[in-house]
Design a protein around this nucleic acid. Sequence first.
DNA 1: GACCATATGGCACTCAGTACCCTCTGTAAA
DNA 2: TTTACAGAGGGTACTGAGTGCCATATGGTC
Lengths: 235, 235
Amino acid sequence: MTEARRPVKKPPMREVLAEAAFQLFLERGFERTTVDDIVARAGVGRRSFFRYFPSKEDVVFPDHERCLADMTALLDAADGGDPVSTVCDAARLVLRMYAANPEFSVQRYHLTREVPGLRTYELSVVRRYERTMAEYLRGRYVGTPDGPLHAEVIAAAVVAAHNNGLRSWLRSGGEGDAEAAVDHALGVVQEVWGAKDASAAGPAADDDEVVVVVASKGTPMWRVVQRVEAALAED
Amino acid sequence: MTEARRPVKKPPMREVLAEAAFQLFLERGFERTTVDDIVARAGVGRRSFFRYFPSKEDVVFPDHERCLADMTALLDAADGGDPVSTVCDAARLVLRMYAANPEFSVQRYHLTREVPGLRTYELSVVRRYERTMAEYLRGRYVGTPDGPLHAEVIAAAVVAAHNNGLRSWLRSGGEGDAEAAVDHALGVVQEVWGAKDASAAGPAADDDEVVVVVASKGTPMWRVVQRVEAALAED
DNA sequence: GACCATATGGCACTCAGTACCCTCTGTAAA
DNA sequence: TTTACAGAGGGTACTGAGTGCCATATGGTC
């Protein structure tokens, strides 16, 4: 058996296409760039483009498919623990994908803001993350009253919080601390919906321990929640 | 030529097109129906279709544009009161639009479930409602810490809750009580995020009144919230 | 009648996406 | 070596959505 060494001869066509497409999108805009323009710059046949990307929009989000798979794997592997906390970890997976390529993410952000077709496409991508999280939560909440409802509301809240933190980082040009922004945003959701990490924080406090909260009537609920949360967090 | 007699009452072309299109979508499916099929059945020119509907998908959601305008008007006219409660009222506006034509809504629901293109389009529509609500909340939360974040999270939660109630009604074939389903779902969100209607429930309780809640550590936050809320609601 | 605005139809065009078939190249079996 | 095979990429023609432009009604006004 003669094994021929195989030095990587060509850069993968997928990357060549994505690179050429992104350059053109930045130069002329998404809508004024045709698929023929892309394949011309990439020096390949038109048919090849659609072999690697099912649509022109897909080339703008080349890594989401893998990230969604990662999230599914993370949730499948998650055992016990606060469901909301687990889902927040799943959201952080998406953030890290963005943070891995700051300049690309920022450019894509501006591109997506301007092109309605890309905004819509991004929505469908985000929706898949949300559904994945909601599915996981639904499994964790079986038997509890309004389990599916809670699952969907919490997933939506987590996604909204994540996106808020992510966008504020993207608006800053990728300069600030993305993790911190998202952690803070997710914290707001966890304060309200999370079971608090009592069960995960070492020896759980006795169930007999109690906290007392005093509030005046009419206080906005999330203020009450913040105080309750603070009280429950005390050690 | 000499055929000058035309007592046609001029049924609005928009409705004629929407009717013809929906019939065909139910008969052959959305993707196997071309715009040419639609205009042929409607007996009008192809160009007229795109005059009334910017895309083939739009004809499936002919009333959302008006509903969005209604929601904007409602929020513009809203004064004072609990912001979350106001936004929930805005969501109920959408529900009532669906409930006004149960059979149409149910058929459209099944159509949308099956056709990816329609699902994506619906996402973009829902997103516009969500942004409208978030925009309103952002205005109401100016000056409060993390106002924009709260605005987006609450809007997302309200939309998710609304859609949960709406979908459960649609799945039932439009038989049950849509308002009740959505009210219950929105109630879950309001329990957590709402300021409770103390300021809107007649003579507000004195700010000096207090409630005391006792909870064991590790209690899921929303259980705590339910009890706090119940306590705050007492008269 | 002439005049004007609006509504509609017709036609041609661009471009995304698909189906089908071709070539090329490297590999394994005869 | 020849043959057979497989997989990557190229080429062509087609469908169908959406747009621009222009011609043609229709209805109202002076």
